[in-house]
Amino acid sequence: MTRLLAAVAAAALVAPAALADEIRVLNWQGYGTDADWAVAAFTAATGHTVVHDYFTSEQEMLTRLRTNPGAYDVVLINSAFTPQAAAEGLIRPIDPALVPNLANVDPALFANEDLNPGGVLMGVPWTWGLTSFAVNTNDFPEPPDSLAVFWDPAWKGRVSIRDDALEAVQFAALALGQDINAIDDLDAVRAKLAALMPQIATFWSSENDWNQNMASGLFAVATYWSGSAARSISEGLPIAFVVPEEGAIGWLDGLSVPASSTRVEAAHAFIDWMIDPEFYIRWDAEGAPATSNTLAAAALPETSFNRAVLGDPEVVARVQFMRPVDDATREAYLLLWQELKAAQ
């Protein structure tokens, strides 16, 4: 009898251990996947434990995947880098059957070109954000719905954009209705930015800088990032974030499984948990970027920025997601931008 009990106890101890894996996640530090409560909940639900490793740049992330085969099971890759990682054979196709929550992911994000290189889903859309603009609600009781407001003479001297060549060029391309990832008429962009220059009060350089200039009333309308806007609004700044009819510049982060992963099922289970509404609702309360899961966005409190401003699939449909920019293009944009600034 005692022997039987001991055997049962031993089996009970061994059984979950045989099924439980330790998965290793590669991500930016402090970016959702490594929240203590999230990892604890995942371990409690599945038995799998989670260990984190961090990178400090996209290039470092790629280098780690190349030089440490088998070391990682889940990796965060910005969509602009997913095609490169897939082409190098660093990541494997996602098995949708193992990620039930994929059914609720926004269709536009699910079909994102960069996450589906060659028509195969290589990264699960996880989080996204925008570069668009915000207005001071004291000046705009009713927020504008077009980028044309930047060129409106009524706001001369109270307009601002960030002093960044890529952002400025893509912003002008957006206003002109061009594809930000394949700008075919750079001269039109130059002319559009030249017309914008006299409107500008000053360039903004940081979130803090932006907040001060908005609070002092210097800015009435200025380009801004969605995550920063959410923070500024929660701090009580009277602003409204606008995603205009022309669209906005977006970034998208996906979760992928390295080709060399040996714990593929556990890795998929973790990714599924990462796009689970239950996980996201708690993360949103701590300040998260927008979610890819429409159910999760809809389940947020009505006052949440990620539901009220970004939760509408209509908004996602208007976004142009940033694709990789090669060095030559980057330098051409910088030169254009410097020539415009030098002409002031």
């Binding site: 220059m197 500008i200 009060a201 000053t202 360039f203 910088l334 410097q338 600034k341 030098a342 002031q344």
Partner: peptide, 13 residues
């Protein structure tokens, strides 16, 4: 502000 681009800021960029 927008008038503040100098040789120094270009080097910094």
């Amino acid at each position: 502000g927008r008038m503040g681009t100098t040789f120094g800021t270009v080097i910094e960029d």
